[in-house]
């Protein structure tokens, strides 16, 4: 299993890098759905450190780019090309246009979160200079395997952690606190509904809601066809992440997965659960 981690903290990288195959790093102002991101100089230092340890390094530039972002984005892509990273995760199509127009030698990973749901789209992006695809969290195990087998792309599959389920340009938490004069400096808040607490954060001018349950797809790893598995450690501290990764390394996935299920409120997402496409009249 090639395990690529979206780290929950900078400290975690130093503590855990020997236990994983690579990292997906975030950059201030161009990355969303993360609880921290690097300033530009810090990012390149971290890339250098991880490359020196022979780790794969990806950078996630996954915000919806506005016109004003394009200049900085272009500069960053040129610098990343020089830095010998393994790829750039993207949501916005502008990255493809910039890469192709400038003949940048950089691998792109199509990561349009909830829209990477079929093999034909993965193949479309492959034909347009995008070498890899990160699949949606909302599709089933069978769909994942069919895409992996039918696509020319390298495939990344989310396998662990809290997943983003709502991304907005509106600072909904800040607005609410302002409206009702709420004083609170929590780094993570929660919205509560029917017994579940959904983490919410504001980072890089973006508001995100995450799943209430920690997604644990580890029990399915051996049934899934994928080049890489993505482990999202957002909202876990470095000790917790280390404990899980050590368990995987030393005792295997089954044992690690049992420990995770005992310790956290988990589910297996949509791997074995298909969403409803057509709502029948009597279900409305």
């Amino acid at each position: 299993m090639n395990l690529i981690v979206m780290p929950g903290s900078k400290k975690e990288i130093k503590k855990c890098y020997e236990l994983v195959d690579g990292y997906i790093l975030s950059l201030e102002n161009l990355s969303v759905n993360v609880n921290f991101s690097y300033k530009e100089k810090e990012l390149f230092n971290e890339i250098e450190f991880l490359k020196s340890k022979n780790k794969k390094v990806y950078v996630s530039l996954n915000k919806n780019m506005h016109n004003d972002d394009i200049k900085f984005l272009t500069e960053v892509l040129f610098k990343l090309e020089e830095s010998n990273i393994d790829g750039v995760f993207f949501y916005d199509v502008s990255l493809v246009n910039i890469k192709n127009r400038n003949n940048l030698k950089i691998n792109l990973v199509w990561n349009q979160e909830h829209m990477t749901t079929n093999y034909m789209t993965s193949e479309f992006w492959y034909q347009n200079g995008v070498s890899s695809t990160m699949l949606s969290y909302e599709i089933t195990k069978d769909e994942i395997n069919q895409i992996s087998k039918s696509s020319s792309s390298n495939i990344f599959v989310p396998i662990f952690g809290y997943q983003p389920i709502f991304t907005s340009k509106r600072m909904l938490l800040t607005y609410y606190k302002e409206e009702f004069d709420i004083i609170d400096d929590s780094k993570v808040n929660y919205i509560h509904k029917e017994g579940s607490d959904y983490p919410i954060i504001e980072e890089n001018d973006t508001f995100t809601v995450f799943t209430a349950k920690m997604f644990n797809g580890l029990p399915f790893v051996n049934e899934l066809v994928s080049d890489y598995f993505v482990f999202n450690s957002i909202f876990l501290n470095s000790d917790e992440v280390h404990e899980i990764l050590i368990k995987i390394k030393k005792e295997g996935i089954k044992s690690a997965s049992s420990m995770i299920d005992e310790k956290y409120n988990t589910d297996t997402g949509f791997l074995n659960k298909k969403t409803i496409y057509k709502v029948k009249k009597d279900e409305e």
Partner: peptide, 9 residues
Amino acid sequence: SSYSGRCVL
């Protein structure tokens, strides 16, 4: 309220 396409609530 989200970017269209970026909501699976």
